[in-house]
Design a protein around this nucleic acid. Structure first.
Lengths: 230, 230
DNA sequence: TCAAAAGTGTTTCGCCTACACCCATGT
DNA sequence: ACATGGGTGTAGGCGAAACACTTTTGA
């Protein structure tokens, strides 16, 4: 095996959080090095002997002290040989979701600062991180249609209207409340709780919860989750 | 930037070809090293300063002398730290299609031998190459439903029934000839040629061709290619 | 009593499904 | 004339789309 390969392997993560009816991405501020003070996606070089997945979890802990709720590989960026000006680095990028219970960012140990940045207001970032975020944004939009990932952005118990607003916000389109509700409930993996939630004025909302086991069972029986909008 | 990372970056490709109503995967026989004589997916380490995509094209040339028709990134395998017993290597895997005009494999320079292996008869391969092939097979099945990739497995001009058989073969299900034809033609990106094709007995088949420009134009106008089967 | 958000049914329309016979050629 | 594969139309059902008023609470 040739031994002079000089290419580094990094992982980067686009972590989405949803609150106040808006979608946010986690950014960290570099503490050291050439990119010091710049805001970037959390991530870093993979350690020797470490799996890619573990590297992502480690970096998220080290840089933001955050626990994620859903993780999947997004894409590997390596067609721009100079995407990192220090060395040839390929980035195995991941896509993660955090629910509101885990939104609090701890004072990071490996980053100078950490913040949630509104997806509609992402500044120009170093490397190809804007491209990575765009790719992730497309992915989340696509997945909302055919995978139950919206629930990973909401608390365990949520009013139905929150789910509806989440879809409307992320997909950037209006949706018909009645048809949406009918369709989602028809699958049978959403359960009604024995609680209601009051928020200021307006009628209190019935709380619902997503049942992942029911989902898996239904899927095994041939259910195909898919939701479209007029 | 830390400089002691000892992880290699390889690319591997699952190249699909379709002929005689069957789907095949390109395998190469290793010429050197610990894995000498074993059949594996074409691929190898990325060169310094080389993009991932170029690495794939280069390896396919060196090992099989083949020109591909469609290429997309599949997945990056790096969660089994010992997937290669020589060193920690991550594999950025690709998914490629070859049409029948390019099926001929040249006597490879960097491989001992090269062959098309029926997808339904893949032997146990070294590394995690069986897993990679499975992933690619799932991907091609999924993509057939919502992207016009079937045409990259057929010659430029083809009888409609070939397309139908391709779908039936790859998806491993029967499809209704009339409904399939109606649906595909309704999109408007398939054009009738002024030729017919005779093959032995039976009525000669009208030839059709896929018009990629028309496809793009229609897609821009909101067309959404999707085909399902009862 | 008004504002604010939650909850709920019906009709229409278009698409997907199911399904069987005739056509052109070679042997 | 028979075997082989190519080519075509229609009716019914089901799910998606469109659409507006009532209910419950807080101020």
């Amino acid at each position: 095996m040739q031994n002079n390969q000089n290419i580094k392997v990094a992982v980067d993560a686009v972590v989405f959080g949803y609150h106040n009816n808006a979608l946010y991405v986690l950014l960290v501020q570099q503490k050291y090095g050439v990119y010091k003070d710049q805001w970037v996606l959390p991530g870093g070089l993979v350690h020797n002997g470490e799996t890619l997945t573990n590297a992502v979890h480690r970096e998220l802990q080290e840089e933001a002290g955050i626990n994620i709720n859903y993780l999947e590989q997004l894409y590997t960026f390596g067609d721009d040989v100079e995407r990192d000006k220090r060395n040839q680095v390929i980035s195995v990028s991941y896509f993660a979701l955090v629910n509101p219970d885990n939104l609090k960012l701890s004072a990071a140990t490996d980053a100078q600062d950490v913040k949630w940045q509104n997806i509609n207001n992402i500044p120009k970032l170093p490397f190809d991180h804007n491209l990575i975020i765009d790719t992730a944004f497309k992915r989340i939009k696509a997945k909302l249609h055919y995978q139950p990932i919206g629930f990973d952005l909401l608390p365990k118990k949520f009013p139905f209207s929150d789910l509806e607003h989440l879809y409307a916000t992320i997909l950037e389109q209006e949706i018909d409340r009645r048809n949406f509700r009918k369709k989602i409930l028809s699958f049978g993996f959403i359960k009604k709780c024995n609680e209601k939630q009051k928020n200021g004025s307006g009628r209190p909302a019935q709380l619902y919860t997503f049942d992942p086991n029911k989902y898996k069972a239904l899927e095994k029986n041939g259910m195909h989750f898919e939701i479209k909008f007029a």
